[in-house]
Protein backbone atom coordinates (compact mmCIF):
# COMPACT_ATOMS: atom_id res chain seq x y z
CA UNK A 1 0.00 0.00 0.00
CA UNK A 2 1.27 3.35 -0.93
CA UNK A 3 0.68 6.12 1.59
CA UNK A 4 -1.19 9.09 0.22
CA UNK A 5 1.56 11.58 0.83
CA UNK A 6 3.95 9.37 -1.10
CA UNK A 7 1.45 9.25 -3.97
CA UNK A 8 1.96 12.96 -4.39
CA UNK A 9 5.65 12.42 -4.65
CA UNK A 10 5.21 9.79 -7.31
CA UNK A 11 2.84 11.96 -9.21
CA UNK A 12 5.40 14.69 -9.01
CA UNK A 13 8.00 12.29 -10.31
CA UNK A 14 5.73 11.33 -13.19
CA UNK A 15 5.17 14.99 -14.00
CA UNK A 16 8.89 15.57 -13.80
CA UNK A 17 9.55 12.77 -16.29
CA UNK A 18 6.87 14.16 -18.54
CA UNK A 19 8.33 17.63 -18.41
CA UNK A 20 11.79 16.28 -19.02
CA UNK A 21 10.54 14.47 -22.07
CA UNK A 22 8.75 17.53 -23.37
CA UNK A 23 11.73 19.73 -22.71
CA UNK A 24 13.86 17.32 -24.66
CA UNK A 25 11.44 17.36 -27.54
CA UNK A 26 11.52 21.13 -27.56
CA UNK A 27 15.24 21.50 -27.29
CA UNK A 28 16.74 18.66 -29.25
CA UNK A 29 17.34 18.48 -32.95
CA UNK A 30 18.69 14.98 -32.96
CA UNK A 31 16.23 12.37 -34.04
CA UNK A 32 17.64 9.68 -31.74
CA UNK A 33 17.34 12.03 -28.83
CA UNK A 34 13.78 12.75 -29.86
CA UNK A 35 13.03 9.07 -29.59
CA UNK A 36 14.66 8.93 -26.18
CA UNK A 37 12.54 11.89 -25.13
CA UNK A 38 9.41 10.16 -26.30
CA UNK A 39 10.32 7.10 -24.29
CA UNK A 40 10.83 9.19 -21.17
CA UNK A 41 7.51 10.88 -21.81
CA UNK A 42 5.81 7.53 -22.03
CA UNK A 43 7.52 6.41 -18.85
CA UNK A 44 6.09 9.40 -17.05
CA UNK A 45 2.63 8.43 -18.11
CA UNK A 46 3.19 4.83 -17.01
CA UNK A 47 4.41 5.91 -13.62
CA UNK A 48 1.26 7.94 -13.20
CA UNK A 49 -0.89 4.90 -13.82
CA UNK A 50 1.03 2.64 -11.51
CA UNK A 51 1.13 5.21 -8.75
CA UNK A 52 -2.60 5.57 -8.83
CA UNK A 53 -3.05 1.84 -9.01
CA UNK A 54 -1.04 1.47 -5.85
CA UNK A 55 -3.03 3.88 -3.72
CA UNK A 56 -5.15 2.45 -0.90
CA UNK A 57 -8.38 4.06 -2.04
CA UNK A 58 -8.31 2.54 -5.45
CA UNK A 59 -6.79 -0.73 -4.41
CA UNK A 60 -4.34 -2.53 -6.60
CA UNK A 61 -5.94 -2.30 -9.96
CA UNK A 62 -4.98 -5.03 -12.41
CA UNK A 63 -6.52 -3.11 -15.29
CA UNK A 64 -4.08 -0.28 -14.82
CA UNK A 65 -1.26 -2.78 -14.77
CA UNK A 66 -2.38 -4.51 -17.92
CA UNK A 67 -2.81 -1.21 -19.70
CA UNK A 68 0.69 -0.20 -18.73
CA UNK A 69 2.10 -3.52 -19.86
CA UNK A 70 0.42 -3.11 -23.21
CA UNK A 71 1.70 0.41 -23.43
CA UNK A 72 5.22 -0.67 -22.60
CA UNK A 73 5.15 -3.09 -25.46
CA UNK A 74 3.77 -0.43 -27.74
CA UNK A 75 6.44 1.93 -26.52
CA UNK A 76 9.02 -0.61 -27.55
CA UNK A 77 7.47 -0.84 -30.96
CA UNK A 78 7.41 2.95 -31.24
CA UNK A 79 11.05 3.08 -30.44
CA UNK A 80 11.81 0.40 -32.99
CA UNK A 81 9.89 2.10 -35.75
CA UNK A 82 11.12 5.55 -34.89
CA UNK A 83 14.68 4.36 -34.89
CA UNK A 84 14.25 2.58 -38.17
CA UNK A 85 12.90 5.83 -39.57
CA UNK A 86 15.90 7.64 -38.24
CA UNK A 87 18.21 5.10 -39.81
CA UNK A 88 16.41 5.37 -43.09
CA UNK A 89 16.53 9.14 -42.96
CA UNK A 90 20.20 8.97 -42.27
CA UNK A 91 20.77 6.59 -45.15
CA UNK A 92 18.78 8.86 -47.45
CA UNK A 93 19.96 12.29 -46.45
CA UNK A 94 23.03 11.62 -44.41
CA UNK A 95 21.81 13.49 -41.40
CA UNK A 96 19.49 13.05 -38.48
CA UNK A 97 19.13 16.74 -37.70
CA UNK A 98 15.42 17.47 -37.97
CA UNK A 99 15.93 21.10 -38.96
CA UNK A 100 18.09 20.04 -41.85
CA UNK A 101 15.63 17.36 -42.79
CA UNK A 102 12.90 19.96 -42.86
CA UNK A 103 14.91 22.17 -45.11
CA UNK A 104 15.40 19.25 -47.45
CA UNK A 105 11.67 18.97 -47.75
CA UNK A 106 11.35 22.47 -49.10
Amino acid sequence: MLPLNLLWWYLGAAAALYVIGLYALVSTRNMIKTVIAIEILIDGAHLNFIAFAATPTAGIDPIAHSIVITSIIIGGCIAAIALSLAINAYKHYGTIDIKKLRRLRE
Binding site: Y18, L22, Y23, L25, V26, S27, R29, I98
Partner: peptide, 15 residues
Protein backbone atom coordinates in the same frame (compact mmCIF):
# COMPACT_ATOMS: atom_id res chain seq x y z
CA UNK B 1 6.24 25.99 -38.74
CA UNK B 2 6.05 22.21 -38.69
CA UNK B 3 9.11 22.04 -36.44
CA UNK B 4 8.58 19.48 -33.75
CA UNK B 5 10.34 21.61 -31.17
CA UNK B 6 7.91 24.46 -31.73
CA UNK B 7 4.92 22.21 -31.38
CA UNK B 8 6.26 20.75 -28.24
CA UNK B 9 6.97 24.18 -26.89
CA UNK B 10 3.31 24.88 -27.38
CA UNK B 11 2.39 21.78 -25.46
CA UNK B 12 4.78 22.75 -22.70
CA UNK B 13 3.37 26.23 -22.46
CA UNK B 14 -0.11 24.78 -22.40
CA UNK B 15 0.78 22.47 -19.58
Amino acid sequence: TGILSMNMLGVLIGI
